[in-house]
Each structure stands twice: as structure tokens, then as C-alpha cells.
Design a protein around this nucleic acid. Structure first.
Lengths: 224, 224
DNA sequence: ACCGTTGCGTGCATTTCGTTCATCGGATTT
DNA sequence: AAATCCGATGAACGAAATGCACGCAACGGT
């Protein structure tokens, strides 16, 4: 369970953040702080893995808090949650170890996405076999999430494909999905691939027969 | 011009890094340090935007240097250049503001790619209009290194074979690997041979029974 | 020296993938 | 109302990844 410290001066927003984090499986809110001083105290009292940090605090800037944190040797990770849109602040944050930067106002889906990505990154352990594995671990953090449906995809078809995929516990091939839905293999593949890039499906080759292996798409159950 | 401090104990490697960085337009080597102490002195003398930091130093770990750097309020960015493959170190580095992680040994193309991406990220300025723009700035640091596989090889299969190989401390034959993964001996052999040419595996014949000796493939743990 | 045995290595058939391009219908503009 | 554009789909066509078949190489035994 990842212990989270929510740092946010606005009581209403702080409460919302607390609720949001609590709704994401694998995360718990260890404490809520409304100022820099409170955050420091909370960090002394309880072990914290992750800070959800607003940058505008009544008694100082969030980056200052972060700097003193690092100076004290604390290595908690940080997701900056702020309305600061200055890219210089983003850069500064990165050099202080900010792993994600979420602009206010944000939806629950956005925050959840970032938290899940962070959990993925955090779960990486052991030895990396090569550069690619290291890159994948880092990439989990920084891959942007395309909010809207890419060009060429329509939501009714996406829903149909999603339904067909979820109904098949052992996965489906693009051809099978297409045949079942009365659409072409090409279209089915487009939507299945979309689901893969969004992280809702995984694909794995199925060997055995002669010829090129078939690609099976499987729905990935979101919750832990 | 981005001022770079190369920190690397091995004089040969340090020189190579110096030359590499110098060859990338927009980057200049401000100084070269062969130890933690030298690095600290160099940082006091000259302004530095970016550290090319080896993590194994004769007088301390690179992450220690980084921690003291942050404590001093220095906000230079860091690209870790090391043979340390422990993903825990990668995580620790991220929380200290490491923006890129390049495994040794690396080619000039790899380093150049990372430097160019970093320059892109650094060039971002002004106000972000929305979350997507922030994500794009951060995404510049992400490395979608396609890791160009030779024709005829697919990455899922390669991963599967790699896993099977790493799981067998005494090595495997192509036939055994194939049977375990549900692929043919031929395919297994293809991927194992690829791993040999890339240097991640070695093969050695196993005599003893009647007939032609079996070829055992063994994972090679790559340290320093 | 020869022979049987066993597994390696490669040309080739096979099947599917992935991409480019044309089509079609609806929305938007003139 | 005509013309135009754009977004979604499918057809066709290489290319790609795999397994089969077969020849050959490397060993122990006689």
C-alpha cells in the first residue's frame, strides 16, 4: 500500500484530493496538510511514499518544501498538483524529482491515470536486462495520455469492440472480433490496438500452428 | 549553450564521454571530474546546467553526490550514465531529479538521442495552455527507442525467450526453451542466437550422451 | 575406419499481420 | 442547392514471423 501525503491549502480541494486518492486501489492517504509547516510535521510523524503537492502554499512555495525535503535526505516521490502553468516551474520540479505534473482543475480519471502509472513505475524491481527495460520503467511515468479518441475511431464501434473483447476471457484475434461484429479485420484491429495503447488490453502471440503467429487481444482487468 | 559536467572515474571512459558530448551541437563540456570531491569543486567554480554522472565513484556513490547537491540548492539536471542495472537505483535517481538513465556500455547514437531530447525538454518555456502541453514537455524525456530488432524477430517472443533463459541458471537448449514456451525449436534457436550476437547470452556444447552434442545457451549477467 | 545416433542449421511453404489507398456517407461551406 | 471537405471503413497487397522437411555435422561405439 502506497502512503500518500496530500498537501493543499484549500480545504475543499484538499478533501477532494483525499477522496480521489482513497478511491484508487493500492493507495492510502496517510495525512493531509494545509501548509508547508504542517507538511513538514506530517512527514516527521508518518512514513510517506508519495506527496500530492500543491505548489502555492500560504507559507511558502511547494518547490521550497521539496528542496528542504531533499536536503533532509527524504526520498519520497512527488506528484505536483497545481494550477501553475509556467514551464520553468515544471523544469525546476523535474530536477527536484517531481514524477508527474497534473494541472488543476483535473478530473478523477486524470489523477487515477497518473497514480496508476506511478504505481507501475514503483513496482519495477530487480535487475534490468538492458536499456530498453530501464526506458520502459521510466516511460511508465512520462507517457502522455491522449484524452480524446484518435482520428479515425468512432465511439459506437469502440464500445462494440470493447464489449466483444470483455466477453472473451481467453482473448480474441482481430479477425475473430471482426467476424463476430460484422466489421472487417482491419477495423477491428484498429480499435483493439487503440485499447492496447490506452492500456485496457494486452496482446500476446499464439504460436503452434504453421505460419505467422496469431495475435490474441485480451481485456485487462483494471482493478488490482 | 548547455554547460555539461562529466563525472566519471575511469579516465578512458571520461574522455570518451567528453568527446561524445562535444560532438552534439548545443552542448559544451564545462569540466570533467574523476571523483565526487572533484565534481563538488567543479560545481563551485563553474556554472553547470547538466551532469553526466557515473554512479560508481571512488569516493562515494553518485546518488550521494546528487543528494548533497540538492541539499545545497543546486538545481542542475542529471543524466545518469552507469552500468548499475538495479531498478531500485533508477527509482532513487528519479526522486533526486535524474532525467535520463543511460546504461553502459552505450553508443554515441544513444547518448546523442538522450541529449537532444533533454535539450528539447529544456527549450520549453512560457506558459502551458493545458495538461497536454505539460505532458508533451515531460514526454520529450521519454525514450521511445524502438530498439530496432532484426527482420524476422518480434519483441514479445524475444521477451518470452529472454525470460525463459534468465530463469534457467544452468542454461537451456533450443529444444527445451521451445517446448517450454510452446514455440518450435527453430524459433527458439533464432532468438537465442540473436541474444548471443547481442552479447546477452553465450552458448557452450554439452557432451556426454551418444550423438551430436547439445548446444546450451546461458544468460550472461552483465556487470561493469 | 566405418557406422549408427542425435541434434544442429537452413531453404521454403504457410499464415497472418500491418499499411497504403480508394470508397462512401455525412457534415460544412459557398 | 451544389460543391467541398473530412472522418470512418474495407480491399488489396507486400512484408513478416513461424514451423516443416531435409541434409549435414559431430560425437561414441565397434
Amino acid at each position: 500500500m502506497i502512503q500518500v501525503l496530500v498537501v493543499e491549502d484549500d480545504p475543499v480541494a484538499a478533501d477532494a484530493h483525499r477522496l480521489y486518492v482513497g478511491r484508487v486501489p493500492g493507495f492510502t492517504v496517510a495525512a493531509v496538510a494545509h501548509s508547508r509547516a504542517q507538511a513538514v510535521r506530517a512527514l516527521e510523524r508518518t512514513p510517506v511514499d508519495l506527496l500530492l503537492l500543491d505548489l502555492y502554499l500560504p507559507d511558502g512555495h511547494g518547490l521550497q518544501l521539496l528542496r528542504s525535503l531533499r536536503a533532509a535526505g527524504h526520498s519520497a516521490d512527488v506528484i505536483a498538483v497545481t494550477s501553475a502553468r509556467d514551464l520553468a516551474v515544471v523544469r525546476e520540479g523535474v530536477s527536484l524529482g517531481v514524477v508527474q505534473y497534473v494541472l488543476k482543475p483535473f478530473t478523477f480519471a486524470t489523477l487515477r491515470d497518473r497514480l496508476v502509472r506511478y504505481a507501475e513505475f514503483r513496482a519495477a524491481a530487480g535487475e534490468a536486462s538492458g536499456q530498453d527495460e530501464v526506458d520502459r520503467a521510466l516511460g511508465a511515468l512520462r507517457a502522455p495520455q491522449p484524452a480524446q479518441l484518435p482520428k479515425g475511431l468512432s465511439s459506437p464501434t469502440l464500445e462494440a469492440v470493447t464489449r466483444a473483447l470483455r466477453a472473451a476471457p481467453d482473448g480474441v484475434t482481430a479477425s475473430a472480433a471482426g467476424e463476430e461484429l460484422g466489421i472487417s479485420r482491419i477495423t477491428a484491429r484498429r480499435y483493439l490496438e487503440h485499447l492496447v495503447t490506452v492500456g485496457r488490453a494486452v496482446r500476446s502471440p499464439q504460436y503452434g500452428q504453421i505460419g505467422r503467429p496469431e495475435l490474441y487481444y485480451r481485456w485487462v482487468t483494471q482493478n488490482h
